[in-house]
Simulated assay, not measured.
Amino acid sequence: MRKRSIGLTRLPRALEVGILEPLPAMLAALNLVDTGARTNEDIFTGPSQWSPQGRVFGGQVLAQSVVAASRTVGEERPIHSMHGYFLRPGDLEVPITFAVDRIHDGRSFSTRRTQAYQHGLPILSMIASFQTVDEGLDHQTPLPEGLPDPESLPDEREQLAAIDHPMARFWANGRPFELRHVDGPIYVEPGDERTAQQAVWFRSRGRMPDDPAVHRASLAYASDYTILEPIWRRHGVAWATPGLKAASLDHAMWWHRPARVDEWLVYVQESTSASGGRGLSHGRIYTRDGALVASVAQEGMTRVPASA
């Protein structure tokens, strides 16, 4: 079995990640350092991208955990599912250590557990499954009809540039993906319709390496951006709502078909429940020609002041 090579060896490491453009910074963060296998574990380390909130972006740790697990599986077995729990906020100033436990290798499937650590404590725990490429039954839920093309929607960088706030500047210029909400973003205002559904087009801000493993990990990265927004949209809450407290609690993802994240993808999302200070959202990611690429589910903490 040949180990997977992510193919990013020419990119800078932790000390230079903070000064890179957003897309190279993401790829550098995914370029984990293999520190060598220990007893029953493979150990990798990686840096974090800068964020004005001072916390590590959850999608980054998910993607890095996918990369770490993928490095211990042969290239002939791509990841098809993962389930992760966010345990603690990440520290931007400290590298993240990823310990991979090779739980099982069967004739068709491999299972891995990845624990992400900082300061000797786990910040994320993930279990992932990999499968040899196979043939079988094939069907999918179709792409909803009537979605506008991404080119017809406003560039959200221009909308965010008009907001004089560090988070707005970061969302406009610091993220490796560009986003275009079909019904308008809810950064400042929640929108007029109280609906628990939304759709968001996204793609990376530039050409990506051709390695399919990089695209699968990057898809996990991007899947964490907007998945909780249908909860807030349903209740008239915007990102800028005073006193809003939100955090991802767990994240599940299933990869169905290959896709490139440097081409437009549309993320169709719905929240099915909110109660007890938590909300649950589901998402389906499609190519623009209608192929279902991945399915996502996430529960998050969503605490909103009573006066909001």
Rank of each mutant, 00 (worst) to 15 (best):
L137F: 12
Y286K: 04
R233T: 09
Y286W: 02
S70P: 01
V73D: 06
P95M: 01
T241P: 06
H215V: 12
G59K: 00
A28L: 05
P212A: 00
L228F: 12
E145P: 01
S295W: 10
R180M: 03
H119R: 15
I285M: 04
M301P: 01
E76G: 10
A252Q: 13
W254P: 06
A306R: 15
V33N: 08
A297R: 11
R233L: 09
R112H: 04
E299C: 00
A247P: 05
V17H: 08
D192F: 09
T241H: 01
D211H: 15
S275V: 13
T241F: 06
R180H: 01
A306I: 07
E151C: 02
G58L: 12
T195P: 05
D138W: 02
R112K: 05
H282R: 15
Q197W: 04
P154G: 03
G136C: 02
R107V: 10
P176E: 12
A240C: 05
D262F: 01
P305N: 08
D138I: 03
D224I: 06
G106F: 05
H251V: 03
A246F: 10
M208H: 00
Q298I: 14
R2S: 14
E21A: 14
L92Q: 15
R4F: 09
T132Y: 06
P258G: 00
V33F: 00
A196Q: 13
A196F: 00
R278I: 03
I123C: 07
P24A: 01
P12A: 05
L137M: 13
W50L: 11
P209R: 05
